[in-house]
Computed example of a mutant assay.
Amino acid sequence: MKKFLKIIAFAAIFPAFLAGCKAPVAQQSGKEDIAYLLFVSPNTYAGKKVTVSLDNQKPFSVQVVKEKKSKRKGTQYGVKTGARHIKVSYEGKTLYNKKIFISTQEVKQIILP
């Protein structure tokens, strides 16, 4: 009879032991260390491709999005965070030439004329 009571007591306590054991879960380490640039223009350069140079490195082409009062949609270009020098030109004419600071996961809008 004592063995029977021990078995019942153990069976009642055993699920509590299992509840304390959890399977390993993948840990989330935080946000990616990247920022984004979005190039917009009200009229003139909307829909055109402009040339962008970051920190005087090799230039690349980007698509300019028309600036609207509603939600802006367009291609966001991923860049490193921190202080960055951005130069935007179109057919040899400099449209934007500034040093900016962008932080993690920030979408910085570069507004062209």
Score class of each variant (00 low, 15 high):
7 I>C: 12
8 I>P: 00
9 A>F: 13
10 F>H: 07
12 A>K: 05
14 F>M: 07
14 F>C: 07
16 A>K: 05
17 F>S: 13
18 L>V: 09
20 G>W: 07
20 G>E: 05
24 P>M: 15
25 V>D: 07
25 V>Q: 11
26 A>S: 14
31 K>N: 10
33 D>V: 09
39 F>M: 01
39 F>Q: 00
41 S>I: 01
41 S>D: 05
43 N>A: 15
44 T>H: 08
45 Y>N: 04
45 Y>F: 15
47 G>S: 13
47 G>V: 15
48 K>C: 03
49 K>I: 07
49 K>W: 04
51 T>M: 10
52 V>H: 02
55 D>I: 13
57 Q>F: 04
62 V>G: 00
62 V>T: 02
64 V>K: 01
65 V>K: 03
68 K>D: 06
69 K>M: 09
70 S>W: 02
71 K>F: 13
72 R>Y: 00
73 K>V: 14
74 G>M: 02
76 Q>M: 05
76 Q>H: 06
76 Q>A: 11
81 T>K: 08
82 G>R: 01
82 G>Q: 02
83 A>F: 08
86 I>T: 06
93 K>P: 01
96 Y>E: 03
98 K>D: 15
99 K>N: 10
99 K>T: 15
104 T>S: 07
104 T>I: 11
105 Q>F: 10
105 Q>P: 05
107 V>R: 08
111 I>T: 11
112 L>W: 13
